[in-house]
Every structure is written in structure tokens, then in C-alpha cells.
Amino acid sequence: MFKILKYSFYDLMRSSWSYVYFLFYLALGFVLLFLNNDVSKAVITLMNVIVVLTPLIGTIFGVMYYYNSREFTELLLAQPLKRSTIFIGQYLGVALSLSLSLIIGLGIPFLAYGLLQSNAIFNFTSLLLVGAFLTFIFVALAFNIALSHENKIKGFGYAILVWLFLAVIYDGLFLISLVMLQEYPLDKFSLIATMFNPIDLSRILVLLKLDISALLGYTGAVFQKFFGTNAGMLISFFVLLLWVILPALRIIYISKRKDF
């Protein structure tokens, strides 16, 4: 598996897209930090970008990589390798190279700004951690979709739809349900509903880290009570981990049954 990972990673690290992605984060980091001069404001803006952009890029890269390397995958399938080795190797290669672009791209401006001396370092690390998680989650979802659809256009369509659903539509439905059910106590419902969307979960994790949950009113207090504790943090990271592991297991499951 590590061999496949290594070569997928090399291949991607040399593609110009990885550099564009890296340079984008580098520029974003420098602009936000040095024009804003306020680390926590920069972190909030970055969070808003990361929470939407990393899933989108992960989805598109995942689907594109799978379809582009189809013939090469066939070559690998003819080698004495297990199918799970091939696909998990490729998946990790894509997810790792994207995560590295993110972490290094944002890490450099923050280091240059003198982050290590400020107390925002924990907020920043949790931001990067969440970004990496989202990348791993959405690349896995993209691989799942691409593996189940031979037709590239369909695969691309469904992948974008999943992103759109989790990034935009889910929040809309969530809000509508909150308005419609406002007579009932909704704190538990909203907590659970948050868990089912990795993007929402990541956003709330970062927001609560920033100590601005007071702005969120009563619900914010409930969330703070839950996520603010160590147990809450652990549970939410565990849920994020599940969001990575379950799609990854499904990659193995589908790939074992697929004809190439």
C-alpha cells in the first residue's frame, strides 16, 4: 500500500494543480494576516474559506484523479497486488498531497507572522486539522462515487451534488426544520443534526475554539456546553474520524466486487 501511496503522491506533487492550490493558500494566508493584523479575525475568515473550499477541491481532485488514472489502475490490477492495497493507496496519496498543500500553504504565512509567539496557535492548529479531516473525508466520498459510476459525467455530477448538499443545502434544510419546529426543545436535535454533516461539525468545532460562542445565543451555550468539554471534543473528532473510515471501508468493499 505504501508503494502505491508513494507513487500517487509523487505524481500529484509534481502536477501543476498541487502548486496552484498551494500558492492559493499561501497568498490567502499572507493577505489575511498582513492586511488584517488580527490573528483571530484571520482565522475566522480562513475557516469560512476552508470549510467550503477544501471539500470542493477534495471532491473534484478525487473524482478527476480516479477517472484520469483508470488505465494505469488496470496496469496495477494486473500486478500481484490486492485491490484494497491499490485503491486505499491511491486514496491516501490524493488526500495526503492535498492536505500538505493546505498545511504548508497556510503554515508558511502564519510562521512568518510570528504565530509561535501568539496564543492563537491552538486555534490555528485546530483549523488545519479540520481542513485535513475535510480533505480526507471528501476525497473518500469522491472515490466512492467515482468507483460506483463508469460514466465520468455522471460521477462528476453526483460528486458535486454531494458537496453542494453538505455545504449548502443541508444548512438550509437544517434552518427550515429549526423554524418549523421552534415550539419544541431543539438543542439535542441540532447537536445530532450537526454530527451528520462533517462541514457543519468542522465549522462549529473551530468557532467554539475561538470563544465567540457567546454570539450564538442559547444554542451556542448548549453547543459550548457540549463541545467545550474534553468529552465533547473527543466525540466530535471521533465522528470526523468515522466520516473518514466508513467511506474508506466502502472503497474497499466496492473495489473488491468491481469489474475493470
Binding site: Y7, S8, D11, L12, S69, E71, F72, E74, L75
Partner: peptide
């Protein structure tokens, strides 16, 4: 123990 020559050759373009 099998050597296979596939019909279409396409490799990772950056290697």
C-alpha cells in the same frame, strides 16, 4: 507469474 500487455497504454503523466 503473469505478464499482461493492456490494450490502451496510459500512465501517470507526471512520472
Amino acid at each position: 507469474n503473469i505478464n499482461y500487455l493492456p490494450q490502451i497504454a496510459n500512465f501517470p503523466s507526471n512520472l
